[in-house]
Amino acid sequence: MSKKSYRQAINEALAQEMRRDPTVIVMGEDNVGGMGAPGEDDAWGGVLGVTKGLMPEFGRDRVLDTPITESAFIGAAVGAAATGLRPVAELMFVDFLGVCFDQIFNQAAKFRYMFGGKAVTPVVIRTMYGAGFRAASQHSQCLYPIFTHIPGLKVVVPSSAYEAKGLLIQSIRDNDPVIFLEHKVLYDEIEEVPDEPYTIPFGEANLTREGDHVTIVALGRMVGFANKAADMLEKEGITCTVVDPRTTSPLDEDTIIEAVEDTGRLVVVDEASPRCGMAADISALVAQSAFKALKAPILMVTPPHTPVPFAPELEDAYIPTPDKIADAVRRVMA
Protein backbone atom coordinates (compact mmCIF):
# COMPACT_ATOMS: atom_id res chain seq x y z
CA MET A 1 0.00 0.00 0.00
CA SER A 2 1.09 3.52 -0.61
CA LYS A 3 -0.51 6.85 -1.25
CA LYS A 4 -1.24 7.38 -4.92
CA SER A 5 -3.15 9.88 -6.95
CA TYR A 6 -5.95 8.84 -9.30
CA ARG A 7 -3.51 9.69 -12.11
CA GLN A 8 -0.74 7.48 -10.66
CA ALA A 9 -3.16 4.66 -10.00
CA ILE A 10 -4.22 4.63 -13.65
CA ASN A 11 -0.64 4.87 -14.85
CA GLU A 12 0.38 1.98 -12.59
CA ALA A 13 -2.50 -0.18 -13.80
CA LEU A 14 -1.44 0.39 -17.39
CA ALA A 15 2.23 -0.34 -16.68
CA GLN A 16 1.51 -3.50 -14.69
CA GLU A 17 -0.81 -4.90 -17.34
CA MET A 18 1.70 -4.08 -20.08
CA ARG A 19 4.36 -6.00 -18.15
CA ARG A 20 2.05 -8.95 -17.66
CA ASP A 21 0.66 -9.19 -21.17
CA PRO A 22 2.67 -8.28 -24.28
CA THR A 23 -0.52 -7.86 -26.32
CA VAL A 24 -1.53 -4.82 -24.27
CA ILE A 25 -0.73 -1.63 -26.19
CA VAL A 26 -1.54 1.99 -25.47
CA MET A 27 -2.41 4.64 -28.03
CA GLY A 28 -3.68 8.18 -28.17
CA GLU A 29 -2.92 11.78 -29.07
CA ASP A 30 0.33 12.79 -27.36
CA ASN A 31 0.18 9.78 -25.07
CA VAL A 32 3.94 10.08 -25.43
CA GLY A 33 4.37 13.53 -26.94
CA GLY A 34 7.22 14.98 -28.94
CA MET A 35 6.71 12.67 -31.93
CA GLY A 36 8.82 14.01 -34.81
CA ALA A 37 9.71 17.09 -32.76
CA PRO A 38 13.22 18.34 -31.96
CA GLY A 39 12.85 18.54 -28.19
CA GLU A 40 12.28 16.01 -25.42
CA ASP A 41 10.79 12.57 -25.90
CA ASP A 42 7.89 11.56 -23.63
CA ALA A 43 7.23 15.29 -23.52
CA TRP A 44 3.60 15.07 -22.42
CA GLY A 45 2.46 11.58 -21.45
CA GLY A 46 -1.08 12.58 -22.35
CA VAL A 47 -2.58 16.01 -21.96
CA LEU A 48 -2.68 15.62 -18.16
CA GLY A 49 0.33 13.33 -17.78
CA VAL A 50 -1.53 10.06 -17.16
CA THR A 51 0.52 7.93 -19.58
CA LYS A 52 3.87 9.54 -18.79
CA GLY A 53 6.72 7.08 -18.39
CA LEU A 54 5.10 4.27 -20.35
CA MET A 55 7.02 4.89 -23.59
CA PRO A 56 10.48 4.86 -21.95
CA GLU A 57 9.67 1.46 -20.45
CA PHE A 58 7.70 -0.17 -23.27
CA GLY A 59 8.92 1.63 -26.37
CA ARG A 60 7.13 3.31 -29.21
CA ASP A 61 5.85 0.03 -30.63
CA ARG A 62 3.60 -0.44 -27.63
CA VAL A 63 2.90 3.18 -26.74
CA LEU A 64 1.70 4.83 -29.91
CA ASP A 65 1.11 8.48 -30.57
CA THR A 66 -1.56 9.13 -33.14
CA PRO A 67 -2.38 11.95 -35.51
CA ILE A 68 -5.59 13.81 -34.62
CA THR A 69 -7.85 11.35 -36.29
CA GLU A 70 -10.09 9.76 -33.66
CA SER A 71 -12.29 7.96 -36.09
CA ALA A 72 -9.29 6.14 -37.57
CA PHE A 73 -7.32 5.33 -34.44
CA ILE A 74 -10.24 4.44 -32.17
CA GLY A 75 -11.47 2.26 -35.02
CA ALA A 76 -7.97 0.80 -35.40
CA ALA A 77 -7.96 -0.05 -31.70
CA VAL A 78 -11.25 -1.85 -32.17
CA GLY A 79 -9.95 -3.72 -35.20
CA ALA A 80 -6.72 -4.64 -33.42
CA ALA A 81 -8.75 -5.90 -30.47
CA ALA A 82 -10.82 -8.10 -32.74
CA THR A 83 -7.64 -9.62 -34.18
CA GLY A 84 -5.47 -10.37 -31.18
CA LEU A 85 -4.23 -7.27 -29.35
CA ARG A 86 -5.57 -5.69 -26.19
CA PRO A 87 -5.43 -1.98 -27.01
CA VAL A 88 -6.06 0.74 -24.49
CA ALA A 89 -6.94 3.72 -26.65
CA GLU A 90 -7.32 7.17 -25.21
CA LEU A 91 -10.09 9.46 -26.39
CA MET A 92 -8.62 12.58 -24.82
CA PHE A 93 -11.94 14.16 -23.82
CA VAL A 94 -15.16 12.17 -23.97
CA ASP A 95 -16.64 15.14 -25.80
CA PHE A 96 -14.64 14.04 -28.87
CA LEU A 97 -16.84 10.98 -29.01
CA GLY A 98 -18.77 12.69 -31.77
CA VAL A 99 -15.83 12.29 -34.11
CA CYS A 100 -15.51 8.50 -33.71
CA PHE A 101 -18.75 7.13 -32.36
CA ASP A 102 -19.51 4.81 -35.24
CA GLN A 103 -16.43 2.73 -34.59
CA ILE A 104 -17.54 2.31 -30.98
CA PHE A 105 -21.28 1.77 -31.09
CA ASN A 106 -21.87 0.21 -34.49
CA GLN A 107 -18.60 -1.68 -34.72
CA ALA A 108 -17.05 -2.63 -31.37
CA ALA A 109 -20.30 -2.93 -29.46
CA LYS A 110 -22.07 -5.15 -31.95
CA PHE A 111 -19.43 -7.53 -33.36
CA ARG A 112 -20.10 -10.26 -30.87
CA TYR A 113 -23.86 -10.23 -31.30
CA MET A 114 -23.98 -9.73 -35.05
CA PHE A 115 -21.34 -12.38 -35.66
CA GLY A 116 -23.27 -14.94 -33.66
CA GLY A 117 -21.01 -14.95 -30.63
CA LYS A 118 -17.81 -15.52 -32.59
CA ALA A 119 -16.08 -12.17 -32.07
CA VAL A 120 -14.08 -11.10 -29.05
CA THR A 121 -13.16 -7.38 -28.91
CA PRO A 122 -11.13 -6.66 -25.79
CA VAL A 123 -10.61 -2.96 -26.36
CA VAL A 124 -10.51 -0.37 -23.60
CA ILE A 125 -11.28 3.24 -24.41
CA ARG A 126 -10.00 5.50 -21.66
CA THR A 127 -11.52 8.94 -21.72
CA MET A 128 -11.71 12.04 -19.58
CA TYR A 129 -15.06 13.51 -18.57
CA GLY A 130 -16.77 15.92 -16.28
CA ALA A 131 -17.22 19.56 -15.38
CA GLY A 132 -15.26 21.76 -12.99
CA PHE A 133 -12.30 22.74 -15.15
CA ARG A 134 -13.84 25.89 -16.67
CA ALA A 135 -13.41 24.02 -19.93
CA ALA A 136 -16.83 25.02 -21.33
CA SER A 137 -19.43 23.14 -23.35
CA GLN A 138 -17.23 20.98 -25.57
CA HIS A 139 -14.75 19.75 -22.93
CA SER A 140 -16.86 19.16 -19.83
CA GLN A 141 -19.59 16.66 -20.57
CA CYS A 142 -20.18 13.31 -18.87
CA LEU A 143 -21.85 11.37 -21.69
CA TYR A 144 -21.54 7.98 -19.97
CA PRO A 145 -25.30 7.51 -20.27
CA ILE A 146 -24.83 7.45 -24.04
CA PHE A 147 -22.42 4.52 -23.81
CA THR A 148 -24.60 2.83 -21.21
CA HIS A 149 -27.48 2.97 -23.66
CA ILE A 150 -25.61 0.77 -26.13
CA PRO A 151 -25.87 -3.00 -25.65
CA GLY A 152 -22.45 -4.58 -26.00
CA LEU A 153 -20.44 -1.87 -24.24
CA LYS A 154 -19.30 -2.05 -20.64
CA VAL A 155 -19.04 1.30 -18.90
CA VAL A 156 -16.81 2.03 -15.93
CA VAL A 157 -16.90 5.21 -13.84
CA PRO A 158 -14.22 4.98 -11.12
CA SER A 159 -14.76 7.28 -8.15
CA SER A 160 -11.29 7.23 -6.55
CA ALA A 161 -7.67 6.16 -7.03
CA TYR A 162 -8.23 2.74 -5.46
CA GLU A 163 -11.26 2.15 -7.63
CA ALA A 164 -9.48 3.38 -10.75
CA LYS A 165 -6.58 0.96 -10.49
CA GLY A 166 -8.62 -2.14 -9.79
CA LEU A 167 -11.28 -1.31 -12.34
CA LEU A 168 -8.76 -0.47 -15.07
CA ILE A 169 -6.92 -3.76 -14.63
CA GLN A 170 -10.27 -5.52 -14.80
CA SER A 171 -11.13 -3.51 -17.94
CA ILE A 172 -7.94 -4.55 -19.68
CA ARG A 173 -8.45 -8.23 -18.80
CA ASP A 174 -12.11 -8.15 -19.73
CA ASN A 175 -12.98 -9.61 -23.13
CA ASP A 176 -15.64 -7.06 -24.05
CA PRO A 177 -15.28 -3.46 -25.21
CA VAL A 178 -14.99 -1.24 -22.15
CA ILE A 179 -15.38 2.51 -21.89
CA PHE A 180 -13.35 3.71 -18.91
CA LEU A 181 -14.27 7.22 -17.80
CA GLU A 182 -11.81 9.28 -15.78
CA HIS A 183 -13.06 12.42 -14.08
CA LYS A 184 -10.58 15.21 -14.86
CA VAL A 185 -11.06 16.86 -11.48
CA LEU A 186 -10.10 13.64 -9.64
CA TYR A 187 -6.60 13.18 -11.10
CA ASP A 188 -4.87 14.75 -8.11
CA GLU A 189 -7.02 13.06 -5.46
CA ILE A 190 -4.84 10.84 -3.33
CA GLU A 191 -5.57 7.73 -1.28
CA GLU A 192 -4.00 4.42 -0.21
CA VAL A 193 -3.70 2.11 -3.19
CA PRO A 194 -2.12 -1.37 -3.17
CA ASP A 195 1.15 -1.59 -5.08
CA GLU A 196 0.35 -5.02 -6.50
CA PRO A 197 -2.09 -5.55 -9.35
CA TYR A 198 -5.67 -6.29 -8.28
CA THR A 199 -9.03 -6.34 -9.96
CA ILE A 200 -12.43 -5.03 -8.98
CA PRO A 201 -15.18 -7.00 -10.70
CA PHE A 202 -17.74 -5.26 -12.89
CA GLY A 203 -21.34 -5.06 -11.77
CA GLU A 204 -20.54 -5.10 -8.06
CA ALA A 205 -21.48 -1.87 -6.37
CA ASN A 206 -19.52 -0.55 -3.43
CA LEU A 207 -21.23 0.71 -0.28
CA THR A 208 -18.98 3.51 0.91
CA ARG A 209 -21.07 3.77 4.09
CA GLU A 210 -24.24 2.32 5.55
CA GLY A 211 -27.00 4.22 7.32
CA ASP A 212 -30.64 3.92 8.33
CA HIS A 213 -32.56 6.72 6.70
CA VAL A 214 -31.69 7.42 3.09
CA THR A 215 -29.86 5.63 0.27
CA ILE A 216 -27.78 7.86 -1.95
CA VAL A 217 -26.62 6.37 -5.24
CA ALA A 218 -23.84 8.38 -6.85
CA LEU A 219 -21.30 7.92 -9.64
CA GLY A 220 -17.73 9.03 -10.26
CA ARG A 221 -16.87 12.35 -8.68
CA MET A 222 -20.32 12.48 -7.14
CA VAL A 223 -19.49 9.59 -4.78
CA GLY A 224 -17.12 11.85 -2.85
CA PHE A 225 -19.76 14.59 -2.83
CA ALA A 226 -22.38 12.14 -1.55
CA ASN A 227 -20.06 11.12 1.28
CA LYS A 228 -19.50 14.77 2.17
CA ALA A 229 -23.24 15.32 2.23
CA ALA A 230 -23.66 12.25 4.40
CA ASP A 231 -21.05 13.61 6.85
CA MET A 232 -22.98 16.86 7.11
CA LEU A 233 -26.29 15.05 7.61
CA GLU A 234 -24.95 12.77 10.29
CA LYS A 235 -24.61 15.80 12.54
CA GLU A 236 -28.34 16.35 12.04
CA GLY A 237 -29.13 12.77 12.99
CA ILE A 238 -29.74 11.57 9.44
CA THR A 239 -27.64 8.59 8.40
CA CYS A 240 -27.20 7.53 4.80
CA THR A 241 -26.14 4.52 2.81
CA VAL A 242 -23.99 5.62 -0.11
CA VAL A 243 -23.88 3.28 -3.09
CA ASP A 244 -21.21 3.63 -5.76
CA PRO A 245 -22.29 1.36 -8.64
CA ARG A 246 -18.76 1.59 -10.14
CA THR A 247 -20.01 0.40 -13.51
CA THR A 248 -23.17 1.66 -15.20
CA SER A 249 -23.08 -1.35 -17.51
CA PRO A 250 -23.35 -3.91 -16.05
CA LEU A 251 -25.33 -2.25 -13.26
CA ASP A 252 -25.53 -3.90 -9.86
CA GLU A 253 -29.30 -3.67 -9.57
CA ASP A 254 -29.54 -6.01 -6.59
CA THR A 255 -27.33 -3.94 -4.31
CA ILE A 256 -29.20 -0.76 -5.18
CA ILE A 257 -32.57 -2.37 -4.57
CA GLU A 258 -31.47 -3.94 -1.30
CA ALA A 259 -30.09 -0.65 -0.05
CA VAL A 260 -33.36 1.12 -0.85
CA GLU A 261 -35.35 -1.64 0.81
CA ASP A 262 -33.31 -1.05 3.96
CA THR A 263 -33.69 2.72 4.10
CA GLY A 264 -36.97 3.29 2.24
CA ARG A 265 -35.70 6.46 0.63
CA LEU A 266 -33.60 7.18 -2.45
CA VAL A 267 -31.62 10.15 -3.71
CA VAL A 268 -29.74 9.56 -6.99
CA VAL A 269 -26.88 11.86 -7.85
CA ASP A 270 -25.59 12.13 -11.40
CA GLU A 271 -23.30 14.73 -12.95
CA ALA A 272 -24.61 13.87 -16.42
CA SER A 273 -27.52 15.68 -18.06
CA PRO A 274 -30.82 14.74 -16.43
CA ARG A 275 -32.73 13.39 -19.42
CA CYS A 276 -32.26 9.71 -20.19
CA GLY A 277 -29.35 9.61 -17.75
CA MET A 278 -28.24 7.27 -14.98
CA ALA A 279 -30.28 9.10 -12.36
CA ALA A 280 -33.44 8.53 -14.37
CA ASP A 281 -32.41 4.94 -15.11
CA ILE A 282 -31.77 4.06 -11.47
CA SER A 283 -34.94 5.86 -10.38
CA ALA A 284 -36.94 3.79 -12.83
CA LEU A 285 -35.30 0.61 -11.58
CA VAL A 286 -36.19 1.39 -7.98
CA ALA A 287 -39.71 2.56 -8.83
CA GLN A 288 -40.25 -0.73 -10.58
CA SER A 289 -38.56 -3.10 -8.19
CA ALA A 290 -38.73 -1.53 -4.73
CA PHE A 291 -41.88 0.59 -4.93
CA LYS A 292 -43.38 -0.90 -1.80
CA ALA A 293 -40.30 -0.08 0.25
CA LEU A 294 -40.39 3.63 -0.64
CA LYS A 295 -41.49 5.98 2.12
CA ALA A 296 -41.00 9.10 -0.01
CA PRO A 297 -40.72 10.01 -3.67
CA ILE A 298 -37.32 9.43 -5.25
CA LEU A 299 -35.29 12.59 -5.80
CA MET A 300 -32.69 13.09 -8.53
CA VAL A 301 -29.82 15.54 -8.07
CA THR A 302 -28.44 16.43 -11.48
CA PRO A 303 -27.34 19.48 -13.41
CA PRO A 304 -30.05 21.31 -15.34
CA HIS A 305 -30.81 20.28 -18.93
CA THR A 306 -28.27 22.70 -20.42
CA PRO A 307 -24.78 22.45 -21.91
CA VAL A 308 -21.94 23.10 -19.45
CA PRO A 309 -21.33 26.86 -19.22
CA PHE A 310 -17.91 28.54 -19.20
CA ALA A 311 -18.16 31.30 -16.59
CA PRO A 312 -17.05 29.95 -13.20
CA GLU A 313 -20.15 31.27 -11.43
CA LEU A 314 -22.41 29.49 -13.90
CA GLU A 315 -20.39 26.29 -13.95
CA ASP A 316 -20.44 26.13 -10.15
CA ALA A 317 -24.20 26.55 -10.24
CA TYR A 318 -24.42 23.80 -12.86
CA ILE A 319 -22.57 21.04 -10.99
CA PRO A 320 -24.33 19.12 -8.19
CA THR A 321 -22.71 19.89 -4.83
CA PRO A 322 -22.65 18.26 -1.39
CA ASP A 323 -25.07 20.97 -0.25
CA LYS A 324 -27.54 20.21 -3.01
CA ILE A 325 -27.31 16.51 -2.20
CA ALA A 326 -27.85 17.17 1.51
CA ASP A 327 -30.88 19.34 0.67
CA ALA A 328 -32.39 16.54 -1.37
CA VAL A 329 -31.84 14.10 1.49
CA ARG A 330 -33.56 16.48 3.91
CA ARG A 331 -36.47 16.77 1.51
CA VAL A 332 -37.00 13.02 1.25
CA MET A 333 -36.84 12.89 5.05
CA ALA A 334 -39.41 15.67 5.49
Partner: peptide
Protein backbone atom coordinates in the same frame (compact mmCIF):
# COMPACT_ATOMS: atom_id res chain seq x y z
CA UNK B 1 4.76 22.82 -36.99
CA UNK B 2 2.95 21.21 -34.09
CA UNK B 3 -0.36 19.80 -33.02
CA UNK B 4 0.00 19.97 -29.26
CA UNK B 5 3.38 18.24 -28.78
CA UNK B 6 3.35 16.32 -32.07
CA UNK B 7 5.29 17.61 -35.07
CA UNK B 8 3.42 18.07 -38.33
CA UNK B 9 6.53 16.71 -40.05
CA UNK B 10 5.53 13.38 -38.54
CA UNK B 11 1.74 13.52 -38.39
CA UNK B 12 0.92 14.70 -41.90
Amino acid sequence: GYAEATASAWSV
